[in-house]
Simulated assay, not measured.
Amino acid sequence: MPSSKPRRSPKPQERQRDPERTRQLILDAAEAEFAAHGFRGARTAAIAARAGVNQQLISYYFDGKDGLYQAMSQRWQELRRNLVPPGTPLPEQLRRYALQALDNPDAVRLFAWGGLEYAGPDSDPDRGPRAEQLGSSVEELRAMQADGRLPAELDPACLLVMLMGAAMAPTSLPHVIAGVCDADPRSPEFLKHYAEQVALLVQLLQQGGG
Rank of each mutant, 00 (worst) to 15 (best):
W76Q: 11
W76V: 08
Q77G: 14
Q77S: 12
Q77L: 06
Q77I: 13
Q77F: 05
E78F: 02
E78Y: 07
E78T: 13
L79A: 14
R80K: 13
R80L: 14
R81W: 01
N82A: 15
N82I: 00
N82D: 15
L83E: 14
V84P: 02
P86F: 03
P86W: 06
P86Q: 06
T88A: 02
P89Y: 13
P89F: 06
P89N: 14
L90S: 01
L90V: 08
L90D: 10
L90P: 05
P91C: 04
P91N: 02
E92K: 13
Q93E: 13
L94N: 08
R96Q: 13
Y97T: 10
Y97L: 15
Y97K: 11
A98V: 01
A98Y: 03
A98E: 07
L99M: 15
Q100R: 12
Q100V: 07
A101S: 15
L102P: 07
L102F: 11
L102W: 13
D103E: 14
N104S: 12
N104Y: 09
N104W: 09
P105R: 12
D106K: 00
D106L: 04
D106C: 07
A107V: 10
V108K: 03
V108G: 00
R109A: 13
R109M: 00
R109T: 01
L110E: 04
F111G: 00
A112G: 06
A112P: 12
W113L: 03
W113N: 10
W113P: 07
W113T: 04
G114Q: 07
G115S: 05
G115A: 02
E117S: 02
E117M: 01
Y118G: 07
Y118L: 06
A119I: 00
A119T: 08
S123C: 06
S123L: 12
D124C: 07
D126I: 15
R127I: 08
R127F: 12
R127C: 04
R127L: 15
R127V: 01
G128S: 03
P129T: 11
P129C: 12
P129S: 12
P129V: 09
P129W: 06
R130C: 05
R130V: 11
R130M: 10
R130F: 10
A131N: 14
A131M: 07
E132Q: 11
E132V: 15
E132F: 09
Q133Y: 04
L134A: 14
G135E: 09
G135P: 05
G135S: 09
S136G: 09
S136N: 02
S137G: 03
V138S: 12
V138L: 05
V138W: 14
V138P: 14
E139I: 11
E139T: 09
E139D: 12
E139C: 02
L141Y: 10
L141K: 09
L141G: 06
R142E: 09
R142S: 13
A143L: 05
M144P: 00
M144H: 02
Q145E: 01
A146Q: 06
A146G: 03
A146W: 00
A146M: 05
D147I: 00
G148E: 00
G148A: 00
R149H: 04
R149C: 00
L150W: 02
L150S: 05
L150M: 08
L150F: 04
P151T: 01
P151I: 01
E153L: 06
